[in-house]
Amino acid sequence: MMMVPLLSGCSPKEAAPAQFRVGQFLFSTQNATITLYDGKQEKTSLKLKYGKLSNYTSLEAKIYFIKVWADGKLLLEKKIGMGRDGRYTLVLTGIPEKNQPVNRKSTMQKLHTIVEGSEGITANDYLPQLIVQNDFYIAEKNTGKIRVMHLMPGAVPFSLDFMNNKGKKEVRSTAYPKSSETIEVDTGTYNVHVHFDASLQTVALQKIEIKESVLHSLYVIPAPERYLTDPILVVGSSDKEKSL
């Protein structure tokens, strides 16, 4: 027990409030509004166009009740804990249906939630859902971190080739709507080629700068109006308060 006070001296820093940002990837919507409530009291609200990733917003560490409206219609409600020092991305994905009830879930989604809890993430029949991404990562010197989230409802998994004059690094996505493992990449500027599995054809291309000790989150979403044929990349960086 003598170790407790001894180790307390090694405690790195004081606790800070929580931070969150929002990715609005609800296909076929123009705008979405996300509002956080502490009990019945509204704490903060964000309105975002399709394909946008917001800045990080700081708020007191608490359990919040979240409501999501798309084009004025209430789609989702969820309770989420925002822990001290925590950083989260609230990802809105799926395709809203006409006259859809709030929080509509497929039977498989309900079953997976029962048995797997927070890890029970399924395609939910491509219905709208709010997925919380943990933005905590272990920073490493000389390298940056990347993770890829497949947010194209109905599309097969794909690969991202990070190419520069030093070579190529491939990152494979998981199935919709999951995130790949976070991996290390050397710092530098890369051309990122997106291609569907079993195809060499590049369906999206973007230049990305990988910075040291920074987490880069890549969201592959359907381009507006074009759906599965033409994905676009949205990139979020942990060192900036704004999206890239």
């Binding site: 180790l7 929580a18 804990g81 822990g83």
Partner: peptide
């Protein structure tokens, strides 16, 4: 030592930090 140190930082929000609170029966699963 780790557990007791953690208890001195009591903060119930951390038990659901980044996830949705779960019903009590989930303890069985």
């Amino acid at each position: 030592a780790l557990g007791i140190y953690g208890l001195t930082k009591w903060d119930a929000v951390q038990l659901v930090a980044g996830i949705e609170p779960r019903p009590v029966w989930s303890a069985l699963v």
